[in-house]
Design a protein around this nucleic acid. Structure first.
Lengths: 219, 219
DNA sequence: GACTTTTTGTACCGTATCGCATAGAAATGA
DNA sequence: TCATTTCTATGCGATACGGTACAAAAAGTC
């Protein structure tokens, strides 16, 4: 039987007594997850060994195992964390009823900031870079991956619909389909960032994408 | 010292004598490469073991090693083969000076046929699915990956330029930038196919992309 | 201070993996 | 017939991998 850690017994909060009982952990779970995510991000799920994760997080393997479960469970947790991050970024960028061009620009800008960061070079989107390869063999990963893509689509869709209601966008445009093309621009930015394209080229493509997405009638 | 196989001594042809000297090989190199590529395609580079490659190709490990070198060399060969395939498909789809809409449609259609094939479900683009994850750690893979992306961009670019010369496309459109957005549609098709989206949804998105790419002015 | 609880650190286990060495098999040429 | 060449088959050895047992360590509790 696997011993559950204290953080799982009282999720998101300290135990009622306020003081935890045993030896204090020498790491911060959230920070460790972020480090683990960075390791997966660079090399992919399969190519990242437990030793690498151990080195990246500063935790030794038993601690890793106790805190997050086995390698796959840890990976799923990093995926979940990334999706939460992405959700927040989308909400932040698309909220506030801004003009369509500005909303799209904010999304692409904040995405590029993430895609271009990384110690060992630009890494692109974590979901696209690491979950996609595993998506055939691992159905759960595929579902999370697909959900991540569609979450972005949905965010863009409400954005386009609102713009249409404000008259910023032609009435015959299908906001759902247009949203999928807006995602396409983000997808290409992720792929190109990982291929090593320069920031200026990516920003130019984002700008061109915005221009196209905000104009043109459908069909 | 690594023994070179006969197929490397006389690339692309039989030896001058017409008859090879020793025991004939029990496999066809091209067919084996295709099988190996399929294995990498499903699971990714790192998650594909030599045993899996051996099972997929029907060759045992020493034969694999003798014919293609180690795992990485074999992977690079499958990459090269896929790029050749892609080049041919692009040339075939974009050649012939067809109307812009038709050219784009042919590219997307032939790409979808590849992306949706696969024994264990739709796999998307081989480059995007398998090379991208390795692109950070392996510079050579990254270069091949980037070259593959740019090859597509270039193909689209000449396509758009020709369409512009024929007056099918507004004169103020930058064909190079527009080509990168045409690639973006292909990128999203690859990512979405691997996520399990249905053919109809992908075809609809391709059609919407074509409509947008053929209209709209730049900036 | 002894006991309990929780985490850490070391060391280990069984297995999978990669690459290769070596021997055998199949075809040709002399 | 026999040597030569080339591929195939078995299987070995070193390493790396994922995962875990166990005892020491650090804190609270009585």
């Amino acid at each position: 039987m696997v011993q559950k850690s204290a953080s799982q017994k009282w999720p998101g909060a300290n135990p009622p007594s306020g003081k935890k009982r045993g030896r204090p952990r020498g790491y911060e779970p959230d920070a460790a997850l972020t480090k683990a995510r960075a390791a997966f991000w660079d090399a992919g799920y399969s190519a990242t060994s437990l030793d690498a994760l151990s080195a990246a997080t500063g935790m030794n393997r038993p601690s890793l195992y106790g805190a997050f479960g086995d390698k796959r469970a840890l990976y799923l947790k990093t995926l979940e964390g990334y999706r939460a991050l992405g959700r927040a970024a989308i909400a932040e960028a698309l909220g506030g009823d801004r003009p369509l061009r500005e909303s799209l620009g904010r999304v692409y800008r904040s995405a590029l900031a993430i895609y271009l960061s990384g110690e060992h070079g630009a890494r692109g989107c974590f979901l696209i870079g690491t979950a996609a390869p595993e998506a055939i063999a691992d159905k759960e990963v595929r579902d999370i991956y697909a959900a991540g893509l569609h979450e972005l689509d949905d965010g863009f869709a409400v954005c386009f619909r609102r713009a249409q209601e404000r008259g910023e966008l032609a009435a015959d445009v299908d906001p759902v389909e247009r949203a999928r093309l807006a995602s396409a621009v983000l997808h290409t930015l992720s792929l190109r960032a990982r291929a090593g394209e320069k920031r200026e080229a990516l920003e130019r493509t984002a700008a061109q994408g915005i221009a196209l997405l905000c104009g043109g009638a459908s069909v």
